[in-house]
Design a protein around this nucleic acid. Structure first.
Length: 571
RNA sequence: GCGCUUGUAGCUCAGCUGGAUAGAGCAACGGCCUUCUAAGCCGUGGGCCACAGGUUCGAUUCCUGUCAGGCGCACCA
């Protein structure tokens, strides 16, 4: 299906070209939804935008365009208003037909630059550490961006850029040999690895020799020592197994799990390339890239004095790898905003190497408690699993209260979906690049702009459709959607805006634009639902409202799916 | 000090490449379940969109500056 905006723009363009053949209209004619129904459904500012350059009166131009814009397939009338707006009123027939035919929500996004692969980096936990709420935002936002681009028809690869090659492994190997509790390790491997890591940090002052030992073990690992490699592999595999459970629970997935170790082999070559091209130079025995003063960036070390490589080197190697193995459309990195400078450095360096495919850093504010930062040493982290458990527990309590008649097994599965949906949505519905203060009650709210509200709206519609079937009134795809009430028209208009909301979310890398849209859609629907009966109406109106309701449910389901939130039939 | 980022209702936040009287949720108050799920709906109150300039027919949106908060600033990731 063609987007309504596209239809109107191409129709208007034809009019404008005929009236003003001398104007270069490329990329200048836009149609957008009006803010108020009294100004019609769509408007264009084209006359006001172009009049000045032509030395013409915008009102006059608007009138000329409006007068000539007749015989549209969609627009009933075009009215000039204000300083030169052209307000467009869609015909009820077109609007009803449009939504009626939107059975599969298959929109035409061919005009988007979809060639090549979109690569999304997200989640990226550090091996041998359990995931906590600090990992939530990257995981959930990245997964949603992946889903959104897929919906638009892009080829997308989600990559979990695991922290599997850091200095922590020397420490872990030392700790493993000295302090490991085998029974605990078998029961909860990552927890035990965390414990020995903390043990290492705790002892390092009293026993400085372990630091040297850790360096030796790390060096052995990096040189391919079989025993250390075996341990490293074990740590990685156990961590991945653990993460897999949480990802499964959250319905988050990846196409690749290339950690930093994956690029280790190509890092010397990357640094050599940088040095050969004069992009990096040796300074204080390290290989460093310096930036122009106008770039306002600190120097970036790509190889330490001791020959070791860093985060930036790894990311550069990763870009090099991707250029060899993918046809890059763009690369998207979802991390907290403290890494903004790091990515600016990496992007600038890559560009200088001629690796200038689009690279985007999608930042978000990190999460902290009101009284300070999360810290495993302080013991005040909230594990992701614990957060999800608490959410599910609270959801279960609400279900028990609101819908006690549901079978127990269904209560459990609904609670799981509602609780986890609430947590994910709480993050996805915000666009803040500032610090997020963690608050149980806000994170687990079930009222207002929340996942449960949207899921509830969906469940209501599904319930209505089931009731209709029981009464022998099965949904009729060929029913006409009619507007007996303004609420129906407003709701229908909202349904048509779904693909635009998805496009905008993609362009801005902001899933919250979809969340906002769905919330507004559900507000429209609930107003409609509350004011206008469906099943009690005579057939013509019944089937009209039933079909409209069904279309709304499709949009809610599809939209929530783009956010990675499940729906339920009853709740 | 330099850089990035944020400042919108009591609180949490939307506000789409500049558009017409600035929106929601929560909280407060008042209504609506013998009718399709009240996790809902309807209504009331609440705002110098941090401040000052500039660009524009038009600025919460773009530019400059000021103030305030957050974050980052060679060998961690």
């Amino acid at each position: 299906m063609k987007l309504i905006e596209r239809t109107l723009e191409s129709e208007l363009l034809a009019v404008v070209k005929e009236l003003y053949p001398e104007i270069d209209t490329a990329g200048k004619l836009f149609v957008q939804k009006t803010g108020d129904a009294k100004f019609g459904d769509y408007q264009t500012n084209f006359a006001m935008v172009t009049a000045k350059a032509l030395g013409r009166n915008p009102l006059e131009m608007a009138n000329e365009i409006a007068a000539k814009y007749v015989n549209s397939s969609a627009v009933e009338r075009a009215v000039v208003a204000g300083p030169g707006f052209i307000n467009l009123f869609l015909s009820d027939k077109f609007l009803g037909e449009y939504v009626k035919s939107a059975r599969t929500l298959g929109y035409d996004f061919d005009f988007m630059p979809r060639r090549g692969d979109v690569l999304v980096d997200y989640s990226s936990p550090n091996i041998a550490k359990r995931m906590h709420i600090g990992h939530l935002r990257s995981t959930v936002i990245g997964d949603s961006i992946k889903r959104i681009y897929k919906f638009l028809g892009y080829k997308v690869t989600g990559d979990n850029h695991l922290g599997d090659w850091g200095t922590q492994f020397g420490k872990l190997i030392v700790g493993y040999r000295r302090w490991l509790n085998r029974a605990d390790y078998e029961k909860s491997p990552i927890e035990e690895l965390e414990r020995i890591y903390v043990e290492f940090e705790r002892r390092i002052e009293a026993e400085p020799e372990i630091a040297e030992e850790a360096r030796v073990e790390l060096k052995k690992l990096q040189d391919g020592d079989p025993e250390n490699t075996r341990l490293w592999t074990e740590f990685v595999e156990m961590s991945l197994a653990e993460y897999g459970k949480i990802y499964g629970r959250m319905n988050v997935s990846f196409d690749t799990n290339f950690g930093e170790s994956y690029y280790h082999g190509r890092m010397p070559g990357v640094v050599k390339g940088l040095l050969d091209k004069g992009i990096a130079r040796i300074s204080e025995d390290a290989a460093v890239v310096f930036f122009e003063e106008s770039e306002h960036l600190p120097p970036c070390i790509v190889r330490k004095q001791d020959g070791a490589f860093l985060y930036a080197t790894s990311d550069l190697a990763c870009i090099q790898f991707r250029r060899e193995h993918y046809e890059i459309n763009r690369i998207i990195y979802v991390t907290d905003d403290r890494q903004a400078d790091h990515f600016r450095q990496v992007f600038r360096i890559a560009d200088r190497m001629g690796w200038n495919e689009p690279k985007v850093h999608v930042p978000f504010g990190f999460m902290k408690f009101a009284d300070g930062m999360f810290s495993s040493r302080k013991g005040n982290v909230i594990l992701l699993d614990d957060l999800l458990d608490e959410a599910v527990k609270r959801a279960r309590a609400v279900i028990e209260e609101k819908n006690p008649g549901l079978p127990d097994s269904e209560k459990d599965s609904v609670a799981e979906k509602v609780g986890i949906g609430a947590v994910k949505y709480a993050d996805l519905s915000k666009n803040r690049v500032s610090v997020v203060i963690f608050d149980w009650d806000k994170m687990l709210s079930f009222d207002g702009n929340t996942a449960p509200y949207l899921m509830y709206t969906f469940a209501r519609i599904r319930s209505m459709i089931r009731k209709a079937e029981e009464a022998g009134k099965n949904l009729r795809e060929d029913a006409d959607i009619m507007f007996h009430d303004e609420l129906e028209r407003a709701l229908t208009m909202r349904v048509t805006q779904f693909p635009v909301a998805v496009m905008k979310a993609a362009e801005a890398y902001s899933p919250n634009l979809i969340a906002d849209y769905l919330f507004e859609l559900c507000q429209n629907y609930n107003s409609f639902y509350n004011a206008l009966p469906v099943l009690k109406e005579k057939d013509e109106l019944l089937y009209s409202r039933l079909l409209l309701s069904e279309r709304v449910s499709r949009v809610i389901k599809t939209g929530l799916d783009l956010l990675g939130v499940d729906t339920v039939e009853r709740m």
